[in-house]
């Protein structure tokens, strides 16, 4: 593909121009997920079969076909986190927020994602909420972090975790 824009969005080029992956990354970068309509339009614009978009979008973990919650909770399931008990942390988040892994709460507030390793193993087990890292988590800290009064808990928990 020689074109370097799609749906008016700029797409970075590699040695072979833009690729299906870079197009999808650009669309997701703009919408936050891959809306069906946008994919159809982009496929027509680039004269690429729609199935190519879907096969790539469903193969790679980073692509999302549904909109995400307003807040994103990521739990790390790397080996270092696992041996320090990350499974219990994920379970507790799931229970406290009422959301399964890779899904979003009914009110559209939280999305829970479990990733393989974020490479900050000294903080294990850790979670990331809206880009902010919380290390040395315990199920109790999880509960405090997500209890009803978010502003109050955020303060107590973050001061407890900063060291």
């Amino acid at each position: 593909m020689k074109k370097n824009t799609v749906l008016g969005l700029e797409v970075p080029c590699g040695p072979n121009g833009v690729s299906v992956i870079t197009v999808l990354q650009a669309i997701q970068g703009y919408y936050g997920y891959l809306p069906e309509e946008a994919l159809e339009k982009a496929a027509r614009e680039l004269k690429v079969p729609l199935i190519d978009f879907y096969s790539v979008a469903t193969f790679y973990k980073n692509f999302r076909l549904a909109p995400q919650g307003r807040r994103e909770v990521v739990t790390c399931a790397g080996t270092a986190c696992h041996v320090r008990g990350s499974e219990k942390i994920t379970e507790e988040i799931s229970r406290t927020l009422g959301v399964d892994i890779s899904s979003t709460t009914e009110d559209g507030e939280y999305s829970l994602k479990c990733v393989n390793c974020v490479g900050a193993c000294a903080l294990a087990p850790l979670i990331i909420v809206d880009g902010r890292y919380y290390g040395q988590m315990t199920p109790l800290k999880v509960r405090r972090l997500f209890s009803d009064n978010p502003t109050k808990t955020e303060q107590t928990v973050s001061s407890g975790l900063s060291k």
Partner: peptide, 20 residues
Amino acid sequence: AGAFVCGETSALIASVDGRV
């Protein structure tokens, strides 16, 4: 785009090319 198998060189090349 998030796939462990892409650390394997031939899969990596497919990914650079935008394929599965």
